[in-house]
Nucleic acid binder design. Structure first.
Lengths: 222, 222
DNA sequence: AAGTGGTCTAGACCACCTT
DNA sequence: AGGTGGTCTAGACCACTTA
């Protein structure tokens, strides 16, 4: 437990953010068993910080669904198994479907042009096997479109869980044919958006989420 | 600003919970203007507590969408206007629709019996004009059904926003014919559930959310 | 260059569980 | 009653903004 990886404050962002990010990675990496107690004092010692930033990090991870806090009782690791991934992707499907449906009639020609540009950057990164670039461009692509729906609250919920899924993706990667499939799905989505066909766009996005989930679950099984 | 309502710790629950609940009520009650800075030191003084519980309360209210925090910048009140209410109810519609669809095939005879019993308690409270009882039974009714979907993460997101909507309901009440309409919608939902008709149940729940939103927005306009 | 206000630390306090 | 561990306080620290 004590071979702690010290948290160093290189950049100017708060310590609780670093603790949160590292703790997320360690939970997803299996350092803490499912259901294990996360004792604040232990974590504070482990990361070389005091208790408060740890508390804040735990609260934020609870918002992502990774951790469960009971008042006056403490925090536990929530099990990140297939059921959990399925749940998160079900939320994605429902909310991203909603957002794309609302966004479709509101997209300007400039929005569509920018989406195409980002999609091309995604394709370039994908073809080079640049996992990090792929994830970044992919998020940009979806974020731009969903933003136009004008539902900041729904977008926030999605983005809160996105970091978690990205973390798993970085660990497990994509399946051999998944990148090509994503490109195809993105292109079809762009076509539906250009036609202002909200219904098709919604069902494409829902399928997109379902396929992403299937691929991630499959990668995690290996 | 300083005629503070002291937070007293009557029961055994944490101070941050009380600060959170009172701050929520005050934000929704219009004590803090939309977009106003929420300075931690001010709030700490106002409630007679130190800064940390205020920070925690703000974090949780951010999870509900009521407050926006920027690291190293502070917290602001998010405007609770019609657009915000619409956004929250859109999230409800998407997620509750998902949960009832998943729950329908899994409901046991005992579940349905219990739902009917809660629904009858709701009707009794409604007919007596017991607003508090109505809200409580209504939440119990939905919670029981959604729980069976087995998506704890989605349920948590819904419940996190429920307190906020309840707070608005307590303030503005229901429209003259809304209680009767809710009873009708609940009964139709129960019938669909008994028929294990997930598709109908989902569309009933989505409509239910839309109608609830329309009524609340109308009540708030007065 | 000082001021404002968010963030962090150390330690006290207190709720809950065990004996 | 004692222990464990979550919660709270007071004040120091530091990031960001004004001039």
């Amino acid at each position: 437990m004590e071979p702690a990886t010290q948290v160093i404050n290189l950049a100017g962002d708060p310590i609780y953010a670093r603790v949160r990010d590292q703790l997320r990675q360690e939970i997803l990496g299996g350092v803490f068993a499912a259901g294990a107690r996360l004792k604040i004092a232990d974590l504070a010692g482990r990361y070389g910080v005091s208790q408060m930033p740890v508390r804040e990090a735990l609260q934020q991870l609870q918002g992502e669904g990774l951790v469960l806090i009971e008042p006056n009782k403490g925090a536990r690791v929530r099990k990140v198994d297939e059921a959990f991934i399925v749940n998160v992707y079900e939320i994605f499907g429902a909310l991203e479907g909603l957002l794309i449906r609302r966004a479709t009639p509101l997209l300007s020609a400039a929005d569509l042009r920018q989406s195409r540009a980002i999609e091309q950057a995604f394709e370039a990164a994908g073809k080079q096997g640049d996992l990090d670039g792929s994830l970044r461009q992919n998020q940009l692509f979806h974020h731009l479109l969903y933003q136009r729906a004008g539902n900041a609250e729904a977008l926030e919920i999605i983005e809160r869980h996105w970091g978690l899924i990205d973390c798993l993706r970085r660990k497990h990667g994509f399946g051999p044919r998944r990148i090509a499939a994503v490109i195809d799905e993105h292109r079809r989505l762009l076509r539906a958006l250009e036609d202002h066909d909200a219904k098709t766009a919604e069902s494409l996005v829902r399928d997109h989420c379902a396929h992403a989930r299937e691929d991630l679950v499959e990668q995690m099984r290996e």
